[in-house]
Write a protein that binds this DNA or RNA. Structure first.
Lengths: 167, 167
DNA sequence: CAGGTGAGTTCAATAAAGCAACCCTCAAGA
DNA sequence: TCTTGAGGGTTGCTTTATTGAACTCACCTG
């Protein structure tokens, strides 16, 4: 299939997808977060084929999103845990879950409810502004070129347009 | 290959990924949001092959995330625009972008800065609690079974555990 | 020592991604 | 009239990823 890599794109969404955008990968992160740390548990829970799980976990470990810890020596046995970057990915997955709850509703209602321990309330994740704390929508956010902006794969036409001052 | 569908999973992340989890799809949504509405513009900007773009746009239209609008009759020409569910996906993509900015930093710095028009400030998207407004982390959120919870592909082991009261 | 467990690896079959070339409709120019 | 060009795809072929099932290997338990 020869999937195109997004690694060369000057786009942080592309960079993120390069690491966690593959089929199964977000669900693997979810499972580890929910307490599944053993290879066989994850494989059975998801129904993913075992060789693919090997590859995906290997990539996640290489990218520093998941840590592989030995929990016994003989025979060598390992557990998978989220590293800090993996833990910070969890809220993004919760936001994606909230989108799915709203726009791809399952019959019977949402399968999971989230409770915020800090305030003790059942809640819906929302993406908010770090400055004013208000929820952000696609309409009230403007994207400006940052220090790393460049024309290249993934931003060819956009770079041309912003050079002209269009959009 | 017959990629396993997540449609039968009792998991809203699976449902979301079924719609926007394929390779390229989030970047297509990003491009449309950023003002690229024509087939050729998106194809050139991303460097995606044209037949794949046809398939992905078709799936997005079928799922109601993107709308296909005729902007002239003879010859028939169309533009692609985000529908409401597509627009609500944009903040999730911004959260993913923020994760990439932090954990998959490009040399030269972030390619895009975001400005919240409502408060006029450059900001970082954060996932927050709808009840108390505080940012959520993986540590202070508990997942409970919801009305649609069930054992099945994607939640086999988890359902067993929560039945025993484990985790 | 038979059977089980954890964590993979190997292999064949098949479906998707990629690339390039082609097609169709219409408009405008020479 | 003939050609060129844009927009929006389709067709065909090759390469690669995914699947599913079987197999391995090292150890533990009864």
């Amino acid at each position: 299939m020869q999937r195109t890599s997004f690694a060369e794109m000057h786009c942080s969404i592309g960079q993120s997808l390069e690491r966690v955008g593959e089929w199964w990968t977000p669900l693997i992160v979810r499972d580890i977060h929910l307490g599944l740390h053993r290879f066989d548990d994850i494989a059975e829970n998801l129904g993913i084929s075992r060789n693919l799980l090997t590859r995906r976990l290997g990539a996640l470990v290489t990218d520093g999103i998941v840590e592989r810890r030995a929990y016994q020596e003989r025979p060598p046995r390992h557990e998978y845990h989220l590293s800090e970057s993996g833990r910070e990915l969890v809220p993004v997955l919760m936001a994606l879950m909230a989108w799915g709850d709203k726009w791809a509703t399952l019959e019977g209602g949402p399968p999971v409810r989230l409770v915020h321990q800090t305030c003790g309330t059942e809640f819906t994740p929302r993406v908010c502004c770090s400055a004013c704390g208000e929820p952000v929508t696609s309409a009230d956010v403007t994207a400006l070129p940052g220090p790393g902006a460049a024309s290249g794969p993934g931003t060819r036409v956009l770079a041309r347009r912003s050079a002209i001052g269009d959009h």
